[in-house]
Design a protein around this nucleic acid. Structure first.
Lengths: 150, 150
DNA sequence: TATTGTTATACTCTATAACTATA
DNA sequence: TATAGTTATAGAGTATAACAATA
């Protein structure tokens, strides 16, 4: 019997191994729960908040596109972040259907503390690797992001 | 303003970039819906089924440990797979609390078709990469799996 | 008493469909 | 009529707590 799930129609074992690796690390990352600073936020919320912090103010639609989720999904994420004071909404200057979502000063402070706490587990795992292995992951992160964005 | 989320307490940018890459590819993988052969199964179910196929019959507890989820989560996955005829339960030879979960013949046939359909998107993305990039991902998959298992 | 597994419950994540307001 | 966003609803994924059966 094959040790790998067989490639019945020419499937590369790489796809299967990569899928399993992604699914498992994703579980681990989501399971990290910080008893952190003001109140914990979820990984999805942190991801959106980091995106706003990196790119500057965006409309909900732009943010959904950058995070590659559907607009209704982003609506809920923004609502949760707004309720906790991490982001604010202001009117769009020319289109009253849209709005501008921006990280608040409090949100900016929060990111520094929360990202650090949130990624402590991952940082520790990375610290246990060799320089060479970290270089592989850095390249892989870039490639994976490109694939996910395709 | 920093282009990256700042490492307020020495956080490596690698952690943030890797986290985003994992989260985004995971979303894409889960979004793949096969109108496939008998009936579609979810990515979590496929992962457990592949694990059983690879390792042979396991108890629910062993399977949960291998997939790194809690036992109640695996209970539901096994129930779904059993209902669809992909796995069967038999009594444990020496311990009546436990049972042995095994892939059925039908389940084995299913894996070949479903894995292929399910990973078509990923295979296409991989096919667009260079040999060198695929080699990076192969190494990264091994490293990530090791980290997730830590 | 400890272990294996299941049931009950709840919360996160995400999508599609339908709706509202504005362009 | 087309677009941006929201609300309603549903299903996947996962966890913790409480329970039952067996060791």
């Amino acid at each position: 019997m094959a040790a790998e799930v067989p490639g019945a129609a020419g499937e590369s074992p790489l796809a299967g191994r990569l899928r399993l690796a992604i699914v498992r690390l994703n579980r681990r990352l989501r399971a990290q729960r910080t008893d952190a600073v003001p109140a914990p936020i979820t990984l999805t919320q942190l991801s959106a908040l980091s995106c706003l912090h990196k790119h500057g103010p965006l409309t909900p639609g732009e943010l959904a596109a950058k995070e590659r989720v559907q607009p209704p999904s982003m609506t809920r994420v923004i609502a949760a972040l707004e309720e906790q004071g991490h982001v604010s909404r202001s009117p769009h200057p020319t289109d009253r259907r849209q709005c501008i979502v921006a990280v608040t000063d409090a949100g900016r402070d929060y990111i520094c503390a929360e990202v650090t706490a949130r990624e402590r587990w991952l940082d520790q795992r990375l610290a246990e690797l060799t320089d060479d292995e970290r270089a592989v992951l850095a390249r892989a992160a870039e490639i994976i992001d490109r694939m996910a964005g395709a």
